[in-house]
Design a protein around this nucleic acid. Structure first.
Lengths: 157, 157
DNA sequence: GTGTGAGTTGAAGTGGACTTCAACTCAAGG
DNA sequence: CCTTGAGTTGAAGTCCACTTCAACTCACAC
């Protein structure tokens, strides 16, 4: 029943470097038992946690937020498929939003490429509601501060 | 004809912090003339460069690559609309790729949410061709090393 | 028992994109 | 002239997600 994984095995199976796994553990995202000789041994359930972490990062969620999400899993029992489904679903709207913003950028770019006007300044950048900022930094799309002053908008010339 | 902008004005119009503008200048992304008193004065054309920089960042391009792209602009004359169109168009396939990958992740997530299997491990993560890695670090979607060992794939249980 | 590859730690380093700071100087209105 | 807000510099700091390092210790096949 135990059938525990070493850090090397978990690394190979998850595609995550051992150093990253130790880092995740320090942040409280995963946990490991220890052998008498102080080596980590991972339950197979940890594999699923690591998978969730990597998926979440692709969605653009920071490790900090991933930790919060993982903290919402039941401690008493091994998380059920439904537990994982709930967590995964909770990222869905973020993913949608990211896709929506990138698609909008693409369309704007298409619209502007003909004229080379870069009026994206007007269409996209001066659209503070609409930026990717504040996405959680893991994959945050840069734009750290569209602290725009709307009174100055729209004049590129 | 000159009609130059101070750093504060360029910052307000572009929504980019003065410190970031100085940083861009150090990296050679923009340039400024100087007054007798050593203050920066920007030509209006720099506004377009800054717009291009921010757009490129949203696409997920690093400042380093943006610099390279900007270096390909003609030095002799003020870049024409066509020049800008060419540069913008050059990001198009990256943008498409990002959107494609995120859409795939969304679909996989949808497919897996029903069962909670997180078999994304199988569908998505174990698909080294298909990761967002190596996108240029500005907005790189994390995944720094899907150095997967394919022999170990697909076993979450 | 011994060699070897895998694992341990805390501290420090990396990279990208900036921001902050201290200590000044400039520009412009009154 | 004086004040005040805006601008200048280089150096250092920040944040995130890790990686690297040195100096050991473990686990296991032979």
């Amino acid at each position: 029943m135990p059938d525990l994984l070493t850090i090397g095995e978990l690394s190979a199976r998850s595609g995550v470097a051992p150093s990253a796994l130790r880092y995740y553990e320090r942040l409280g995202l995963i946990r490991a038992d220890r052998t008498g000789g102080n080596q980590r041994r991972y339950a197979r359930a940890e594999l699923r946690r690591v998978a969730f972490i990597r998926i979440s990062q692709q969605v653009g969620v920071s490790l900090d937020e991933i930790r919060e999400a993982l903290d919402s899993l039941p401690e008493a029992r091994t998380p059920s498929p439904q537990d994982w489904a709930r967590l995964s679903a909770s990222w869905r709207s973020r993913l949608d939003e990211r896709i929506r913003l990138l698609s909008k950028l693409r369309d704007d770019l298409d619209g502007c490429i003909g004229c080379g006007c870069l009026s994206l300044q007007r269409c996209t950048l001066n659209n503070p509601e609409d930026t990717l900022a504040g996405e959680g930094p893991g994959a945050r799309l840069v734009l750290p501060r569209p602290t725009d002053d709307p009174t100055l908008a729209g004049s590129l010339n």
